[in-house]
Amino acid sequence: MSQVCDICGKGPQSGNSVSHSHIKTKRRFMPNLQKVRHQEPSGEVKTIKACTRCIRNGAVVKPAVKKA
Rank of each mutant, 00 (worst) to 15 (best):
P63Q: 13
C54D: 11
C51S: 06
L33V: 06
R27K: 15
E40A: 01
T25K: 12
K46W: 03
I48T: 10
S2V: 05
N32P: 00
K67G: 15
N57G: 06
R37Q: 15
H38R: 08
I23R: 12
K26A: 15
C5D: 06
P12K: 11
R53I: 14
T47F: 08
V60W: 04
R53E: 11
P63N: 11
R28Q: 13
R56E: 07
K67N: 09
G11N: 05
K49S: 06
K67D: 12
L33I: 03
C8I: 07
N16V: 01
P31G: 01
P41Y: 09
R27W: 00
N57W: 10
R37M: 05
K26P: 03
C8M: 08
Q39L: 08
K67A: 11
V4N: 03
A50E: 09
G43M: 05
K35Y: 10
N57P: 02
K10I: 07
V45W: 12
M1G: 15
G15S: 15
G11V: 01
V61G: 01
Q13K: 06
I23K: 11
R53Y: 09
H20L: 13
H22L: 13
K67E: 12
M30D: 06
N16R: 07
Q34S: 09
R37Y: 09
G11Y: 00
Q13R: 11
Q39I: 13
R53D: 15
K67W: 10
A68G: 14
K10H: 04
G9F: 01
M30L: 12
K35H: 12
I48Y: 02
S42V: 10
V45N: 11
M1K: 07
R53P: 01
A64G: 08
P31V: 00
A50W: 00
R56T: 10
P41N: 08
Q39S: 11
K10Y: 04
S14H: 02
L33R: 06
V61Q: 07
T25P: 01
H20D: 13
K26Y: 04
K67S: 15
V36M: 13
G11R: 05
M1C: 14
R28M: 08
R27L: 03
R28F: 04
C51N: 03
A59F: 11
I55N: 07
S42K: 01
T47G: 04
V61N: 14
S19G: 14
H20T: 10
H22Y: 13
K46H: 03
Q34C: 10
V18T: 07
K35P: 03
E44H: 00
M30W: 05
H22D: 14
V45G: 11
P63E: 12
S17M: 04
P41S: 15
G15Q: 12
E40L: 04
R56N: 15
Q39R: 08
G11D: 13
N57C: 08
V4W: 00
K35R: 13
I55G: 06
A59T: 12
K46G: 03
V61H: 02
Q3V: 07
G58I: 04
H38C: 04
E40D: 13
V65G: 09
S14A: 00
I23M: 02
C8Q: 03
V65T: 15
H22P: 10
H22R: 14
S2M: 01
I7N: 14
K10T: 07
E44Y: 02
Q13Y: 09
K62S: 05
V4K: 01
E44P: 03
M30F: 07
V18G: 11
K24F: 06
A64N: 14
F29H: 12
I7Q: 15
